[in-house]
Design a protein around this nucleic acid. Structure first.
Lengths: 257, 257
DNA sequence: CGTTAAGTTGATCCTGCTCAAGGTCGGTGG
DNA sequence: CCACCGACCTTGAGCAGGATCAACTTAACG
């Protein structure tokens, strides 16, 4: 049993310590990649909440880096059902389709008003020649996405509704808070509807609602009109059945070398 | 409705055509990356079927490239349940943890006897300086894994047991066949147990068995003692509810530039 | 103050899980 | 050659976690 009572109890604080120790991580943790990509500022575009950044099945010859705001990637089924693949915070690379003329196999949508840096394939190509280290850093960023996707896969495949929702809320909370090291409050603005939560966890919105109600009644978390409050972190970690190692991996740590 | 009757019917053949047109793809589609990595031949290791290539939670300072055989990546829960994240064919990059001292958040296991090229983080680092293009190619390889993981996520979150199993079998069949462009037979050696299939699709082995029985009775596919036979490709594609675009993306296509 | 999107709750149904008992295949040793 | 064993496959009966459908409430916003 990897998850002990002690480690559960101190997880949130450990993350906090790890973050505050590396002071100013907010800037610091932004990989070189993104600073380099800042050179292509010409391509910045604004999106309104609810607007598609790129759409499923449409040819896509660029990569997208989220500068500000929230976004999510998703898939649509023929019958209109949706699966949310992940949520993106500033600094995320949203689509990487470097093949010419490839069509997007998933879509991305802004959750709040957002600014996105669009880097055309050609620009990326020449950029990576000027600054060869960008390739490896991009690989690292994407491999992080991949690890997150693997966690979600485990969650959908082998966890109960309760565990999945606890997992999601905890993940978003920790990832969000790691961007603002100073703040220790256990409350945040989480720009999701219950339908988003359902679509991310493979549940119906109705069932997501019931689970959230139970968690609220038990005094674990409160999610009401886009405000998330974690009332009992220990219990939440317990319900989510999270391995503390895993939670640490959610915090963006650029490769050291 | 993206999936039309016609496109369903010709999907397998389209893939075939696309493959045979680029003759000798088996070699050709192997990205430069792997050929470059071939320089580190010193690190080749053999694994027996069932043996872990690397294990969950163990510090991991290298990347692994599958040279021959089948493997899979997986996650374990505290209670012993397992989620299989994906199956790897030769050419796949299995673990990418370039941070010093990072622990693996998933494990990898050989499904058949396998040869794996182990490239320590340091070697990769210096290699990427000698051959800067490696970074981008690695990024591309990993982004492909990520797309596959996204497909599985959609499958687990929003598809029925029947659809998930059909999807998995079709995916493995197409990916496998794309390595052997000449062969058109609709039969292959698939070194999985029904437990693997259950663990990959988020089902119990018992239920996976029932679904496979139904598919067999309906004359769609036969999976018996590690032999997969696709009896009715059209129906299988239909049951899997696959968008042909998606299936095309399973075939490894290196970035063209 | 009316409208709309989102949240809430109940009743009922069904997909897939659990538990349990065989059955089949391939290998191994007497 | 046969008996035995272990891993895997197969099937049944009963149960339960979430889905579905439908009605109603609440909050936000112009």
């Amino acid at each position: 049993m990897a998850r002990t009572a002690k480690s559960s109890r101190t997880l949130l604080n450990d993350c906090q310590i790890c973050i505050t120790r590396r002071n100013g991580l907010c800037e610091d943790c932004t990989p070189e990649t993104l600073r380099a990509l800042a050179g292509c500022r010409s391509g910045d575009r604004k999106f309104q909440a609810g607007q598609d950044i790129f759409s499923l099945g449409v040819p896509c010859d660029a990569i997208y880096s989220l500068v500000s705001g929230w976004a999510f990637r998703y898939n649509l089924l023929d019958d209109g059902r949706r699966q949310i693949l992940d949520f993106a915070l500033p600094g995320a690379v949203l689509g990487f389709h470097p093949a010419r003329g490839a069509t997007a196999t998933f879509g991305a949508q802004a959750l709040t008003d957002a600014v996105v840096r669009v880097i055309p394939r050609k620009a990326l190509h020449s950029l990576s020649k000027q600054r060869p280290e960008i390739g490896m850093q991009l690989a690292w960023l994407i491999s992080r996405d991949c690890s997150l996707a693997f966690d979600h896969l485990t969650s959908l495949g082998r966890h109960s509704a309760r565990e999945r929702i606890a997992h999601l809320l905890l993940e978003l909370f920790i990832r969000y808070r790691s961007q603002w090291p100073g703040i220790r409050t256990e409350e945040m603005h989480l720009p999701l509807t219950q339908e988003h939560i359902g679509d991310a966890t493979g549940l119906t919105a109705v069932h997501a609602n019931r689970v959230l109600r139970d968690l609220r009644r038990e005094g674990i978390v409160e999610f009401h009109y886009r405000r998330l409050r974690i009332l009992d972190p220990d219990k939440l970690i317990d319900v989510a059945a999270i391995d503390p190692h895993l939670a640490m991996s959610w915090i963006r740590q650029p490769p050291s070398d």
